[in-house]
Design a protein around this nucleic acid. Structure first.
Lengths: 213, 213
DNA sequence: CCAGTAATTGACCCGTCGGTCATTAGCAGG
DNA sequence: CCTGCTAATGACCGACGGGTCAATTACTGG
């Protein structure tokens, strides 16, 4: 009988598998409480083998968080730069896309991790700030400013308006991450996006002018 | 010469001091990375003395998070239950109060901690859910539902509307906690509250009816 | 002033986990 | 087939930090 080898040499495949496992464990336990042994186990190799690919735990963390930062953001930025769609359509599409992105656990738990570990890893926070959040915010502010120039959006600070737009989606995502496991009522992010879009478009209040009609 | 004693017996004063120091350290480092030695140092006693008042680190954490949960929320809930103020005034006052509460680091960093450690401490998340977040959300949903019944607010899911209201303030608070230390542009929460109120009241879009005037 | 009590401490213990290293074993090239 | 390279391992180390305990010292009541 040809016995199965105890392990395989798979130099190119390893890093991806390690990072995937690490993302899981870091997301579940947080940086400090995550054990390399557990990451190794889930990645299907030994703890020592991790050190072939990453010099230490911190660097592995950096690789995990840094790698998966950009992709979803690009899509959102692309939507916002679709110039000359009416702002209402832009906003609706953006909120829908964000609901979608935050419905999958990947980006969502990553966001929670950045919030959780940002203080202890200033460079991680900076990486996300520069590469993800600030860019998204800037793209959105720019879109709002353009819409203001076209007379579609009322005057006001575009940056603060951008926060008004994305705040509820972030809160929804964090609710799912933190409160639902603790017994909180689930939230349908798509429904939230729709409801919030209605509010952003027309406000919550019923206008007096409506009575005049 | 009457020599100063090396230490004092201050049984009643200790718990408060320990919890204050613990809040600081937990907020700075996170639960796992917080060292009891450092908490002891800042509280002005020895590590061993902490164990007179708390059986272990986890229990201390529980005490810290549990204790400071309620007070600010009560104020906000009280505002929302001021029945029969016009909803617009209710919302404006609530947002202003929230901006104020989140401008101080206490509640703000506590919120970040709950997000950070909620997964590892389900009971903490549950404590906050039951005692703080769910109650605030319920009070707000109720206020919105009442306003809908009076015809002040458009139809729609009150719970999702409540998330629309508070989302941006939470995001602002987290921005200050996480991104500003990493070089992010600061945010004036009071200005954010005002801008967001304007959006919630009337929306971002300039109405066509306005042209008719 | 003098016990007796209990708050407080410093030194210690020990489990855990990040990180290292000599050794093993898969595999490619001749 | 076998030989050399190196991916991969298991056993180990050392530091760090949570938690304990006997000894110490501030008080309190008589």
């Amino acid at each position: 009988m040809t016995t199965d080898p105890k392990w395989r040499r798979r130099k190119t495949a390893r890093p991806g598998e390690i990072e995937a496992a690490a993302l899981e464990v870091f997301a579940e336990r947080g940086f400090a409480a995550a054990k390399l042994e557990e990451i190794a186990e889930r990645a299907g190799l030994s703890k020592a083998a991790i050190y072939v690919y990453y010099p230490n735990k911190t660097e592995l963390f950096r690789a995990v968080v840094g790698a998966r930062a950009a992709p979803d953001i690009e899509t959102i930025a692309a939507i916002l730069e679709t110039a000359d769609l009416p702002f209402a359509e832009l906003a609706r599409a953006m909120l829908a896309r964000m609901a979608e992105a935050m419905s999958r656990p990947g980006l969502r738990s990553l966001a929670r991790m950045v919030i959780a570990e940002g203080r202890n890893f200033p460079e991680i926070a900076q990486l996300w700030h520069d590469g993800v959040v600030a860019r998204a915010l800037a793209a959105m502010s720019a879109a709002i400013a353009r819409a203001q120039a076209r007379g579609e959006v009322r005057p006001g600070n575009p940056r603060l308006m951008a926060l008004s737009l994305i705040g509820p989606m972030m809160l929804g995502a964090l609710w799912i991450e933190v409160m639902v496991p603790a017994g909180g009522e689930p939230i349908d992010l798509t429904a939230l996006a729709a409801e919030h879009f209605a509010t952003v478009a027309d406000g919550l209040l019923i206008k007096d002018e409506a009575r005049a009609a």
